[in-house]
Each structure stands twice: as structure tokens, then as C-alpha cells.
């Protein structure tokens, strides 16, 4: 082969290789969201914020960010909303079924930058999946962080996910876990906050100058959440956005997820706002 100036690493494993994983538990989180708990054939280490490709044999695959702590590498949780072709089949998966995993891919949350800080986590809907991973990972070494404020949004009380875990999370002294729903339909009970998740920012009591914030959720929430945090005084370089969009191959080859010269799958999915603010259509 001809020599061109490029750095070639030792051959890595076939990047297209799929690791089989057995489903050992399925949790119905909300009418549209399920969490699959998987046991991969071999250890599957990842860093919180990175994503994987979940294959349903013979159907196809989709990108999902694990929702479990990265301190666990023998099992993996994936939280999936039913929203299209592949996810419809993901929701049909039963205990004992074999699915496939590729990855992990992309950038992760820079935990070292959160140490000693008052971290704000802002999320909505199925965007809570990567944030649960981050949150559980932080709780594993909770003494390293000054405080963790987690604002979680959902459409209605029924759409709230990780219901059974919330009580446990709230017991941590340094943790504030506050939920808000957009609306409370008649007949449903709710005694926590009401309104789009960004209304919770009114309660925020963190110095925005030197503290980081992490945002993940549906595009519209990402947009207004980010803009509100900027207004509140957060710095562009301290805002971490999970641009989980259009990832497909996972290693920057298919070019589906390009954000200008960046790839969501390779340079992201975790970006700081100042990295991508000048690119086109980042909120689409």
C-alpha cells in the first residue's frame, strides 16, 4: 500500500462487530418508554455520555445512550422511547431475547471538570436516559462533587420515568432532585412542580459563573433550556449538550450526523455550547 501521511493505530477490532447481549429484565417506565436491562456476552465498558448501537436481529439498529452507571460493565441498561420502526421492535423484546450491541462510541461527560462544583443537570422526556447514567455515575463517587441539582421534566405524571428510583435518589444529602410536568390531566395525581422544565430554573440557587450545567432532552427543550441558562449567566464553555442526533454508524463514516465539520457520533454526542453554537440548524 502507498504511504500517505496519516497516523494509523494498531488494528482495532472490526468496528462493525456486534456483541450479543441477553435481555434479563424489561421495565415499562411510561406508556411510551421502556428500559431494557442487558447482559452482554463479554464485558462492555463505556464512559457515561457515550452511546451504543442496539441491534434487533434482522430488523435494524439505533443509537442509544446507556442509562446505567459506567462503573458497571457486566450489565447495561438502555432506555428507549417508542417512536419509529426500530424502536417499535425494541419494545417487543422479551426477557431471554438476544439483541446486539456495537460501541461504545463518541465523547463522554468530562467528570473531572465537575469535581468540587455545583452541577446542574437539566433534562426532559427520554433525554433523562443519558442523564440517569451520568447521575448514577456521579452518585458512585458523590463525595467528589459539591452538590448535584437535577431538574427533570415530563409531559404528564404518567410520562415520568425512573419512578421507583426517585425516592432513593432524594435521600442523598448533596442531591436536589426536582421534577416538573407540563400538564396534569384530570384524574392524575401530582404534588410536585407543574410547567415546562425550564420554569424550575426560577428556583435555581447556583453561582452560574464557574459551575457547569448538562442539558439533554427533546430539541425544543435543549434549545430553550440552553438559552435560558445563558440568560441566567452560565458560560458557553460550561454548558454541556448531548446532541444525540442522527447518529448511525458510530465512527464518523456514514456522515449522517454531521453538524457542519463536526460529527455527533465521533466529536460528540457531548458538546459544549461554544463548540457548536455557530453551526447551522443545531436544534433541528
Amino acid at each position: 500500500m502507498n504511504q500517505f501521511n496519516q497516523e494509523v493505530a494498531e488494528p482495532i477490532v472490526n468496528p462493525y462487530e456486534v456483541v450479543p447481549a441477553e435481555v434479563y429484565e424489561v421495565i415499562q417506565e411510561s406508556p411510551l418508554i421502556k428500559t431494557l436491562r442487558l447482559k452482554p456476552e463479554r464485558k462492555f465498558p463505556f464512559k457515561t455520555g457515550q452511546f451504543i448501537e442496539l441491534t434487533i436481529p434482522g430488523i435494524g439498529e439505533g443509537p442509544f445512550t446507556p442509562s446505567s452507571s459506567h462503573f458497571i460493565d457486566e450489565t447495561l441498561d438502555v432506555t428507549v422511547m417508542k417512536t419509529g420502526f426500530v424502536t417499535e421492535y425494541v419494545h417487543k423484546v422479551k426477557i431471554g431475547d438476544i439483541v446486539g450491541l456495537r460501541g461504545p462510541y463518541g465523547s463522554h461527560y468530562p467528570l473531572e471538570k465537575f469535581e468540587g462544583k455545583d452541577l446542574l443537570i437539566l433534562g426532559g422526556g427520554c433525554g433523562l436516559a443519558p442523564l440517569r447514567s451520568l447521575f448514577l455515575t456521579l452518585l458512585h463517587e458523590v463525595e467528589k462533587y459539591n452538590s448535584i441539582t437535577f431538574y427533570a421534566g415530563a409531559k404528564t405524571p404518567k410520562d415520568c420515568i425512573y419512578k421507583d428510583e426517585v425516592t432513593g435518589w432524594r435521600k442523598y444529602p448533596k442531591v436536589k432532585f426536582i421534577r416538573s410536568v407540563d400538564v396534569v390531566p384530570e384524574g392524575e395525581e401530582w404534588n410536585e412542580d407543574v410547567g415546562v422544565v425550564t420554569v424550575l430554573l426560577k428556583q435555581l440557587n447556583i453561582d452560574p459563573e464557574n459551575n457547569p450545567a448538562v442539558v439533554c432532552g427533546p430539541p425544543i427543550m435543549m434549545k430553550f433550556g440552553t438559552l435560558d441558562l445563558l440568560k441566567y449567566g452560565y458560560k458557553e464553555e460550561n454548558l454541556y449538550l448531548s446532541m444525540e442526533k442522527k447518529m448511525y454508524c458510530g465512527f464518523g463514516q456514514c456522515r449522517h450526523c454531521v453538524i457542519g465539520p463536526y460529527f455527533a457520533c465521533k466529536d460528540g454526542p457531548v458538546f459544549t455550547y461554544n463548540q457548536i453554537k455557530d453551526e447551522e440548524e443545531i436544534w433541528d
Binding site: N2, Q6, E7, V8, A9, N14, P15, Y16, F251, Q253
Partner: peptide
């Protein structure tokens, strides 16, 4: 020359 960089690099090798 371009596809060599795109498909054989330190992060990714297309087998």
C-alpha cells in the same frame, strides 16, 4: 488519498 485518511485512521479502520 482522501479515502485512505477517511477509512484507515487512528480511530477507525474499515476492514
Amino acid at each position: 488519498e482522501l479515502t485512505d485518511i477517511a477509512l484507515i485512521n487512528k480511530n477507525f479502520i474499515d476492514p
